[in-house]
């Protein structure tokens, strides 16, 4: 990839699903998005606005019906295997494999990359400890609290030292205080890594807390607005900004 070029580039991307009965459903329509290296972008929108489809398109798990998607200059769907170790993903639910301990879950990506067993354990333990999971390395997912499981999921993503981080509603199902703490940890670690990050969420607070840029998606999946999040804003200014974002989402119209 060229150093100056965008890390993520979606051009005129659409995704249309066709049901068994032949009914067509447009989940994403003419979506354009560019994310530069090191940017932390929050994609926010109502439930059902095509956020998850966009997420799956970016990960290369689905093929776009039309348009082009490039991550680091490569197509995530057509050049699927090129992305080994390039993407770090934190999902809405922890998605920890229930038959693996915290350590075994954290290192699964390193196993896929064929790291030696010692390297796998060293790296995974380092991240588990950084995420304050000392003493729980050998615990199975059902023996951990929701917040701890999500921390293991984060360790699994950070272990890979990926080029791009994706987080899909990663803190949405946790209680407010746990979610807030984990958001802080996540932002700290992503900032520290200086890697590009795309956060998908329906929670405006979360989007503003983590993202330095806000992309608002409308139904069906298209960009309504793309704006910088205010820095050093007063509480009143922040509230006003939030209201504006809410209005854009409610009106579902593209803002010029």
């Amino acid at each position: 990839m060229s150093a100056a070029g965008p890390v993520v580039r979606m051009r005129d991307v659409s995704k249309v699903f066709t049901s068994v009965d032949g009914d067509r459903f447009t989940a994403v329509e003419s979506l354009d998005l560019e994310v530069g290296s090191g940017d932390i972008v929050a994609i926010v929108g109502k439930t059902g606005c095509g956020k998850s489809t966009t997420f799956n398109l970016l990960l290369g798990l689905e093929e776009a019906t039309t348009g082009s998607i490039e991550l680091l200059g490569h197509d995530p769907y057509r050049e699927f295997d090129w992305f080994r170790s390039k993407l770090g993903v934190i999902f809405q639910t922890d998605r920890l494999l229930p038959w693996r301990t915290a350590l075994e879950n954290a290192r699964v990506g390193l196993e896929i990359l064929d790291f030696s067993e010692k390297e796998q354990n060293d790296i995974a333990l380092q991240w588990l400890h950084k995420l304050e999971l000392q003493g729980f390395e050998d615990a199975y997912p059902h023996e951990l609290s929701g917040g701890m499981r999500q921390r293991v999921g984060m360790a699994r993503a950070f272990c890979l030292s990926p080029e791009i981080f994706f987080a899909d509603e990663a803190f949405g199902h946790l209680d407010q205080s746990t979610a807030r703490r984990l958001r802080e940890v996540f932002l700290e670690l992503v900032t520290e890594s200086r890697k590009t990050c795309l956060l998908i969420t329906h929670n405006i607070h979360e989007a503003l807390e983590i993202g330095s840029r806000l992309v608002i998606l409308g139904r069906p999946g298209r960009v309504l607005a793309d704006m910088e999040t205010p820095t050093n804003a007063t509480r009143a200014e922040m509230a006003e900004f939030e209201d504006r974002v809410l209005d854009i989402i409610e009106n579902n119209e593209v803002v010029g």
Binding site: F83, R84, V89, R95, F166
Partner: peptide, 23 residues
């Protein structure tokens, strides 16, 4: 969900079988 989680890491078919299907 597990399948997508692992596929995002780009495992080989063999790895997918040994890490997900078999267990």
């Amino acid at each position: 969900e597990y399948l997508d989680m692992l596929r995002a890491m780009r495992p080989t078919r063999k790895q997918l079988f040994s890490k997900l299907v078999l267990p």
